[in-house]
């Protein structure tokens, strides 16, 4: 019953971690001062969740690429399942990034979107790429071929990401925006809140992936047993 113990530890960690993170973000970390108008900047609190979900989304897509390479090497079903579920989770966190990012930007730039902000634009392109990945998966009927095509696209898509980031950064250099946002140094207590939230989000990702994987494997097992009967 080792699995059960691990479940309890992970779920307990997440439940407590959620409240600790909320406390750290809203009580422990001081509110920031908006450098554009020197007023208290409550919306800066979005930063903690925004960056954490962006990081988690990126991690998820990295896992897709690694699982894709493993799948092409040994054709294991588990690697394919990891790639698929990780892509799905990555989409969820990237969506969260794309919602929180513009809200944060609005409080700083005064507008929701800026095409010369490389991180935001890269997140958008990531979102398109992996929605495409999931559509590709859903439009191939045969299991084995679907896994192969998806793996090939998963690798190509991930390789594209740093180049997209670079291109948007250089685009900004040749078409400077009105206001360039560069986050200044974080206050130490802000750092604590940030890294803790980052950690909790990563655990969220791990548990989501682990659960989804278990559900799919159990369903396989169930189908196999049903055929036996």
């Amino acid at each position: 019953m080792n699995k059960k113990a691990l479940d309890i530890i992970l779920y307990g960690l997440l439940l407590i971690g959620m409240f600790v993170s909320l406390y750290l973000i809203f009580q422990y970390a001081p509110p920031a001062i908006n450098p554009t108008n020197n007023q208290t900047w409550y919306e800066q609190k979005i930063f903690y969740v925004h960056v954490s979900s962006a990081w988690t989304g990126f991690l998820a897509f990295f896992v897709v690429a690694v699982a894709s390479i493993i799948f092409l090497r040994n054709e294991s079903r588990i690697a394919d399942l990891v790639a698929q579920t990780s892509a799905e989770i990555g989409i969820v966190f990237t969506t969260l990034t794309l919602i929180s990012g513009p809200l944060w930007a609005k409080s700083f730039w005064g507008r929701y979107w800026d095409w010369s902000e490389p991180r935001l634009v890269t997140a958008l392109i990531l979102w398109f790429l992996y929605i495409g990945y999931l559509i590709l998966r859903s439009s191939v009927g045969e299991d084995f071929r679907r896994a192969r095509f998806a793996a090939v696209f998963g690798i190509i898509a991930f390789l594209d990401v740093p180049i997209v980031f670079l291109s948007v950064r250089w685009y900004r250099a040749s078409h400077p925006p009105l206001l360039v946002f560069e986050p200044g140094g974080l206050d130490p207590s802000m750092k604590v809140a940030f890294f803790f939230t980052l950690f909790i989000f990563t655990v969220f990702y791990v548990v989501l992936l682990r659960n989804a994987l278990r559900i799919k494997l159990l369903q396989d097992e169930l189908n196999r047993l049903k055929e036996v009967i």
Partner: peptide, 19 residues
Amino acid sequence: IFGYLVVQYMRISRLENEI
């Protein structure tokens, strides 16, 4: 998110029982 995790967990236990 946490609610979704709980739903996932319930599904896992149900599947395990069925098996």
